[in-house]
Design a protein around this nucleic acid. Structure first.
Lengths: 184, 184
DNA sequence: CACCCCATGTAATATGTTACATGATTCT
DNA sequence: AGAATCATGTAACATATTACATGGGGTG
C-alpha cells in the first residue's frame, strides 16, 4: 500500500522524500502514517523497479533526490486504484484509497463508491442487529465500556454512510459538513 | 498491544486460543484484528513470562490449551490500561484500550477519559480551522476526494467527541445511540 | 551560538499476515 | 458421506517503528 501512496503523491510533480512526508502529514496523514525508516528505502526500491524516476540535485552543499512517477508507475498506480476497495482492510486503509479517487475516471469511481456504499449499509445493519439484541439485555459496569465501543462502531457506520452518499454526488463539502464547534 | 489484549480477555475466565479469537471477532474485532499466526505464539510467550497460566486438557481425542491471567498478568494489564491513552496511536488502538475501561477504577478512568476528550476537542478545532481555510479556496475535481477525506475526519472527530461525552457519564447506550436505519 | 528545521539514510527491532499442515467433531 | 467448524500450530513473507547517525541552513 505504501508503494501506491508514494506513487500517487508524485504523479504530477517531482518531490523529495522529505517533501512527501510533509505532504502526507497535512493531507492523508489523518489516517495514513509514514516513517522515514520505511519511506526512503521504498522510494529507492520503486525507482529500481522503474515506477519512479530519481534525479539528484545539489542545492548549495545539500544533496536532494527528487522522485516522480514514470508512465509505468502511473499505470501500476491507476491499476491499484481501480480495483474494488478492500472490504476487509481497515477503515483507514479504505479512506487512504478514496483519497486518490480524483485520479480515477468517473465511471470506475462511481462503481467503486456504489459498491462501498452497499458494503457500509450492510455493516450498519449488522451493527444495528447486535445493538438491538444488546439493548434488551442487562449490563453491568464492567461490560459497559466494551459495549460502548460497539455503539461507536454503529455511529461511525452512519457517519461513513452519510459521507459516502455525499461525495458520490460531489456535493460541495463546505456546505454539508462544516459545523460550528459550539453545536457539540 | 496484542499482549495486553490477550491478557484482558482471560482476566476472569480461562479460554483456549480458539475461544479468544472467537470472542475478539464479535466484540473488539471491529477495530482490532487478530490472526492465529500471531496469537498462538504470543499466548505461549505470555505463559512463559508468567503472565498467563496454561493448562492442557484432553477433550475426547482433542487437546485443548486453556489460558488464564495470573496475578502478575493482571497487574501488568492494569498497569497498561491505567496509562494515558496514546494520543499518537491510531483511533482503532485507542478504542481497543477504552474497550477494557470497565476494569479500571473509576478515578483513573475519569481522568483518562477527560484527557482524551480534551485531545479530541483540540483535534476537532484543528480540523475546523483547516476546513474553513479550504472552504474559501476553489477546488478542482481532482482534489475533491482528497479534501473530502479531511471532512470525513472532521465529522469523525465530532462523532468521537459526542461518544466520549456520553460514556463519561455512563449514560444508557441504547438510548443515546441506536437509531432506525431509515433515518439515513 | 544555540536551537530548530531541512535532508538523507541505516540497523535493530517489532509486529503482523498468509499459506500451509494436521486432524477431530458436529451438522446437514 | 461431505462440508463446516473446532482446534492447534509453523514457516515464509510483509510491513512498519524506533533509535541512531550525519550534516547543512536559517532564525532569534
Amino acid at each position: 500500500m505504501l508503494d501506491y501512496i508514494l506513487i500517487g503523491l508524485v504523479l504530477d510533480k517531482k518531490q523529495t522524500g522529505y517533501d512527501i512526508k510533509k505532504e502526507v502529514e497535512n493531507s492523508i496523514g489523518n489516517f495514513y502514517k509514514i516513517s522515514y525508516g520505511r519511506m526512503y528505502p521504498t522510494l529507492k526500491a520503486l525507482a529500481d523497479k522503474g515506477l519512479l524516476t530519481m534525479t539528484e540535485q545539489m542545492e548549495g552543499k545539500r544533496l536532494k533526490r527528487y522522485y516522480m512517477a514514470t508512465e509505468k508507475g502511473r499505470e501500476v498506480f491507476i491499476n491499484w486504484l481501480s480495483a474494488p476497495i478492500d472490504l476487509k482492510a481497515s477503515g483507514e486503509a479504505q479512506l487512504a484509497q478514496i483519497f486518490f479517487y480524483g485520479e480515477l475516471p468517473k465511471e470506475v469511481r462511481d462503481i467503486r463508491l456504489q459498491e462501498f456504499e452497499i458494503y457500509i449499509q450492510q455493516a450498519l445493519m449488522q451493527f444495528e442487529g447486535i445493538a438491538k439484541a444488546l439493548a434488551a439485555e442487562e449490563m453491568d459496569e464492567k461490560s459497559y465500556y466494551g459495549i460502548s465501543t460497539l455503539y461507536y462502531g454503529l455511529q461511525n457506520a452512519h457517519n461513513i454512510l452519510r459521507w459516502i452518499r455525499f461525495i458520490k454526488e460531489q456535493k460541495p463539502l463546505s456546505e454539508g459538513f462544516i459545523r460550528p464547534y459550539n453545536e457539540d
